[in-house]
Design a protein around this nucleic acid. Sequence first.
RNA 1: GCGGAUGUGGCGAAAUCGGUAGACGCGACGGACUUAAAAUCCGUUUCCCGUUAGGGAGUGCGGGUUCAAGUCCCGCCAUCCGCACCA
Length: 835
Amino acid sequence: MASRFNPLSADARWQKIWDERETFRASDASAKPKSYVLEMFPYPSGRIHMGHVRNYTMGDVLARFRRMTGHEVLHPMGWDAFGMPAENAAMEKNVHPGTWTRANIAAMKAQLKRLGFALDWSREIATCEPEYYGQEQALFLDLYEAGLVYRKESAVNWDPVDMTVLANEQVIDGKGWRSGAVVEKRKLSQWFLKITDFADDLLNGLGALDQWPEKVRLMQENWIGKSVGMRCTFHFAGRPGGFEVFTTRPDTLYGASFTAIAADHPIAQELAKNSPDLQAFIAECQQSGTAAADIETAEKKGFDTGLRVQHPFDPNWHLPLYVANFVLMDYGTGAIFGCPAHDQRDLDFARKYGLPVNRVVAPEGHENEPVGGEAYVGPGRLVHSHFLNGMEIEAAKQAVIARAQHEGWGKGTTVWRLRDWGVSRQRYWGTPIPFIHCDDCGVVPVPKSQLPVKLPEDVSFDIPGNPLDRHPTWKHVDCPKCAKASRRETDTLDTFVDSSWYFIRFASQPDDKPFDRAVAESWLPVGQYIGGVEHAILHLLYARFWTRALKKIGKIDVAEPFTGLFTQGMVTHETYKAPDGNWLSPQEVEARDGQIVAIASGEPVQRGRVEKMSKSKKNTVDPGPIVDQYGADAVRWFMLSDSPPERDLPWSEAGIEGAWRFVNRLWRLIDGLEDAQGEDKDLDRKLHKTIAGVAEDIEDLGFNKAVAKLYELANAIEKAKPSASRATAIRTVLRLVAPMVPHLAEEGWARLGEDGLVADAAWPDVDPALLVDDEVTIAVQINGKLRDTLMVAKGTPREELEKLALAAPNVLRQLDGAAPKKVIVVPDRLVNLVA
RNA sequence: GCGGAUGUGGCGAAAUCGGUAGACGCGACGGACUUAAAAUCCGUUUCCCGUUAGGGAGUGCGGGUUCAAGUCCCGCCAUCCGCACCA
């Protein structure tokens, strides 16, 4: 009597057994080769979304596969639990951020468990718990002792109505997102991590990350932004003083025709005191937005200060000094020299203000060719440049730097776009920064014996500002050094700090220290890290920095945290827009007479693009009800099917239906298994090719290809007549699909009377002899066009193939008696006749 | 503007080394089973001509190399992503 696969009961049954047996608990002491598979841990927003499901399913397949191939697998899960949404919820719903966060964690954990992920829950971490952030405070103090943490004045976005500091993302068009008040810049003393100490190493390290997407490496490279060049001083003509300039093209110094400083350069500020015109110009510069579109169209504008500066090579050669809108104070020195012939911006500027354009670099034979509308940035030799004439660009750069250093007016230097990492946040829901401010002793670290510095629970969010700052008792403490009444630091750490080392804590989490070095090193680096590309820069760069910082202070010897990185695509869904401009969910529309209409009103609606699921577009699909309807396996299967994992996956009702159908087909195969006699060589080959192919695809994270191969195998088994081969194939298929549809696999494993759990079973062995066919199809082409095919034994000699090809019926007709001019034979592949 | 990725049927996609383009899935169409429907099963499905046999075209566009190009080279176009006046 045929049985049906009931995912509701099967899912629960096997999840319970995995839990009870601690099947996926990773053992530090294991002698097996270790494999660390990690997906980016979620922010506990309250609900799992499809993106999570896809992300964690991919990691899960890999983790389960690695277990089957003999690895001790660490596959942990936790919560990036600090952050602003909890404070927003606190304000809106009058609930404590901790209560809100912990409730969300409980709900999301249940949802993840419902999907049957092979996670080691014994290592679960929530960054908002003192067990975690207390250890983070200890590490922060270690970095402080090592000189990698410092304080400095820095500007923040201040919302004068909400009396709070805003993150850049919370400033919209210069106004606070909540209050709508115009945001002010305020200077606050803040904590910084010296990531720039590692700029060179972070850049160089990218070269070794060959299992990272090229795209991410490039993004990090650009972010770090290394520029090698020269710093040099320009002196004013006819008055004392001057300023420093940074350039990557010291070779073009003889082509200089002006100098320029940023609007907020101290010299500009000074000059503006006596010049209302300059004041107005500076105001104009500051007003023009740095928004993406503006810059594209922004005109180069300058204000001639009237001051003249001496050219470093010739004190009698004077250049004008402008304040210019395209010079940035926070890059280099905030001042440039302009060489219009070889820099497009300088050229635009020079044309506008009638400044000379002097070519100093030229390819062979173009020495006196004037520069037109486009600056020349190509290779060549120096011209019109005195002692530099005839040199290649690189040599000329070195020559200028050497002379500048010799004469004392400049030196070779490297400038980075990367800034030190400001980690202070004037917020409650984050890791308290473990310092105390004493009037006499200054900034004093909290002694490690007093860690963790716990967040006070009794806080309110009904008035604006930082609750830590206005808490009646929390910040009042005695100085650990002199015992005088002092104040606690009330800033908390950027949540990116929390996620910069969590993968180490997963590997080792003793009570008395952040991690045990030997244990952590036995797991690290993470072999495969999977997550969204939105973390390509900050999170990944910060984690790479922390790993280096911890290495520098001798806490761990790991070069890079993540050997392999995979950035998966998003889950997308159709969108629909009503005539009134409102979005409609795909459930609210239907097709009627070849038109898409709103079900409620009958009005025609417009089909929008297939886009990332978002509440605003009303195209989200909640995984919860889908899992309840189809079971975890169908959802997992669908997440892996069709689209390559790095690309977007369009969600569809039909897609999940298809996955569900396949789960049932598999079950029918298992359920209907009859032991029979006899060999089916073709099926044996298909099976072993699939074993090898699926393993390869999973290793490459090519899940869609693995899925396709499993479909092919299932089709072949269904078509095959009963035989011993067929029975073996069905038993083997269970292990092949186990990483993807583990509940069904366990159910089938038990049904077929196999021992233990399929989760503990080994990946099937491949018989290499069965990977090669003994018959092959030969394509017969005439002039490269397919005309016929031949079935021949593998290894049929060339002459034989040629003879067979020439005798093929379609070839005879096409050639019509003529002999081919040339015959190309590729054994076991094709014969091409050139007529 | 700079950098990167992508472009193949109605749709998601395969083709790993230059060698039969479209595997696999979805959808659609036809059929079986059924009083009927669902489920399931069988078949067809790149386009055009043709009842079949077969023929022609075809991997964003235009050139090229080659016996042979989705794949290599040159030049374009479009879409998406990232960065953005970085001296």
